[in-house]
């Protein structure tokens, strides 16, 4: 609860900060529109040559695109900028100010920096999902909706824990400017269902960098192609990985020397 209240607070600060730079909203709108256009054109070109891509129909791939924007937007709005700032704080020793605050430090460093205009990506993601759902119409029952929601929440938890673990490495290496970019660049692969990739890449995108759980698995849930075992696996991972991230965070924190050390 405290976490949500803090997130809300930082969201408001983010909004107030950004309202000074309203031109950025237009820029973000343009960038997101180009991103959406790219995704749709890509689908158009591929589906001009076939009616199904490894078992996925065009409307089902629209679901993948929607989730890709939604999850990517969430990560880029809160988690990535916050963790980027946390890594900078460790490097400069200014994490002291965060650690002395009377709230959980891991929560605080995870939600402190909000890029408000990324809401545009989230809105686009939801919009694309709605369009896809209307077009799929009949196929979505309550079971699919439930599987989708559970898988989406699990995917979000897994992605958060993964990014948190990556960022926590900064306690050992101090300078790791680009490590979060690894996720960003591999996330591109999530535009397409990872089931079409060769097995080595599919395994990598499932267990090394959990993009499959973030995008493909929720999409499978929505189109009713998610097995119970896979869903259970996603939930188990969504419990285990945040716990591991928590443990790793405490381990790393013990190495933190502070600004004057």
């Amino acid at each position: 609860m405290t976490a949500l209240r803090l997130l809300w607070l930082h969201l408001r600060i983010g909004v107030m900060n950004e309202l000074q730079y309203r031109a950025n909203f237009v820029l973000q709108l343009g960038e997101s529109a180009i991103g959406l256009l790219t995704a749709l054109l890509g689908l158009g070109i591929v589906f001009a040559k076939t009616d199904d891509l490894g078992g996925w129909s065009p409307d089902e791939l629209l679901v993948v695109v929607g989730i890709y924007f939604l999850v990517g937007g969430l990560a880029q709005m809160v988690v990535q900028p916050s963790l980027q700032r946390f890594m900078e704080d460790v490097r400069q020793g200014t994490l002291d100010f965060t650690l002395t605050k009377p709230v959980d430090a891991q929560t605080l460093v995870s939600i402190r920096q909000v890029e408000v205009w990324k809401l545009v990506d989230i809105a686009i993601g939801i919009g694309v999902l709605v369009v896809a759902l209307v077009r799929l119409g009949h196929a979505i029952g309550p079971a699919e909706a439930a599987a989708f929601l559970v898988a989406l929440l699990a995917g979000a938890a897994i992605v958060y824990a993964f990014l948190m673990i990556l960022a926590t490495c900064v306690f050992w290496f101090i300078r790791l400017d680009n490590i979060l970019v690894i996720f960003q660049s591999m996330y591109e692969a999530g535009r397409w269902p990872i089931t079409i990739y060769p097995s080595w890449l599919r395994l990598g995108l499932t267990f090394l960098v959990p993009i499959g759980f973030a995008v493909t698995v929720p999409a499978q849930g929505l189109v009713g192609r998610l097995t119970l075992e896979l869903l259970a696996g996603a939930v188990a991972l969504a419990v285990a990985m945040p716990l591991a991230a928590r443990w790793f965070w405490h381990l790393g924190l013990r190495r933190y020397g502070g600004a004057s050390a």
């Binding site: 591929v46 040559k49 076939t50 009616d51 199904d52 891509l53 490894g54 790791l176 400017d177 680009n178 490590i179 970019v181 690894i182 660049s185 591999m186 591109e188 692969a189 535009r191 397409w192 079409i196 990739y197 060769p198 890449l201």
Partner: peptide
């Protein structure tokens, strides 16, 4: 070297993505 590693991941991932997409299309046709 770290930045180099990230660049290398990008370099290899991109052709593999499109290769996988189009190979899947070819298989279905």
């Amino acid at each position: 070297r770290g930045a180099l590693a990230i660049w290398a991941i990008n370099l290899i991932l991109e052709p593999v993505i499109y290769l996988a997409v189009w190979s899947t299309v070819a298989a279905s046709q």
